[in-house]
């Protein structure tokens, strides 16, 4: 990963809600093709950080850039991102494929044939091409989250942001989707910033783990997971790492 291009740069970012200090001088970056996990206790400001990165909120201090474009540049900046929330957030009156195409429709009058093709391609990547004409209430929770994933990658963003995307799902679906997202990442050369509160998940998927502290939140440690993919869950290395992370949290 050395010497490779920086996609996301978080530079000295602080944020507060009124008197509540949430983030304090957070700095890190994500390089091309990297999967970086943000791991932190509940309420430490992970979602807040992702909102700042996705341009839903504006930084009060510090800078966020994606591919060299500053988050203060609003509309142009947003073209570089794909975001998956904890819930799928599908539009219930639209079919699966029309949900996947919504990022295009929000920016232009008519979706081109090429873009429709991209939409189907994205659905294929998440294994849902045969559900293109179904509505979200006809899909399972895991399938809905797959649609959300397809929607997030359809515009071919420079970085994919995921905010605890698998939290609501059962263990089986969760692990299945972890593998799928990893293989999708391999196939499409994605760069990912993945928020989670689950150390095992972080160890399984991440190249690097950014461990955050309790509020006011600072970067406590950045851990590199030096293990090639595909990984084995519960390997000795994984268990050691998990122990190390749990120790970090219990110091608080």
């Amino acid at each position: 990963m050395e010497n490779s291009e920086v996609i996301l740069k978080i530079d000295d970012v602080s944020f507060e809600y009124g008197k509540l200090k949430v983030l304090e001088q957070i700095s890190f970056d994500v390089k091309k093709n990297e999967t970086v996990c943000i791991l932190g206790p509940s309420g430490c400001g992970k979602t807040t950080l992702l909102r700042l990165i996705s341009g839903l909120a504006t930084t009060q201090h510090g800078n966020v850039t994606v591919s060299g474009v500053s988050s203060s540049q609003g509309h142009d900046y947003k073209q570089h991102l794909g975001l998956v929330f904890q819930e799928p957030r599908l539009l219930p009156w639209r079919t699966t494929i029309d949900n996947v195409l919504i990022p295009f429709e929000l920016n232009q009058d008519k979706v081109t044939e090429e873009q429709k093709e991209k939409g189907m391609q994205a659905l294929k990547l998440v294994g849902l091409e045969s559900f293109a004409e179904n509505y979200s209430h006809e899909l399972s929770g895991g399938m809905r989250q797959r649609v959300a994933l397809a929607r997030a990658i359809v515009t071919d963003p420079d970085i994919l942001l995921l905010d605890e995307p698998l939290t609501g799902l059962d263990v089986h679906t969760k692990e299945e989707l972890q593998d799928e997202i990893l293989s999708l990442k391999e196939k499409t050369k994605r760069t990912m910033l993945w928020v989670t509160h689950d150390p095992q998940e972080a160890i399984y998927i991440a190249d690097r783990i950014i461990v955050l502290s309790n509020r006011p939140t600072v970067v406590r440690e950045i851990i590199s997971v030096n293990e090639p993919y595909p990984r084995t869950r519960m390997s000795q290395n994984a268990l050691d790492l998990e122990k190390r992370i749990r120790n970090l949290f219990s110091e608080d």
Partner: peptide, 16 residues
């Protein structure tokens, strides 16, 4: 939350 989802893709409020 759906409006928020849409706002991650565009700043055009009329389109949202």
């Amino acid at each position: 939350t759906l409006i928020e989802m849409a706002s991650t893709y565009t700043n055009k409020r009329f389109r949202i």
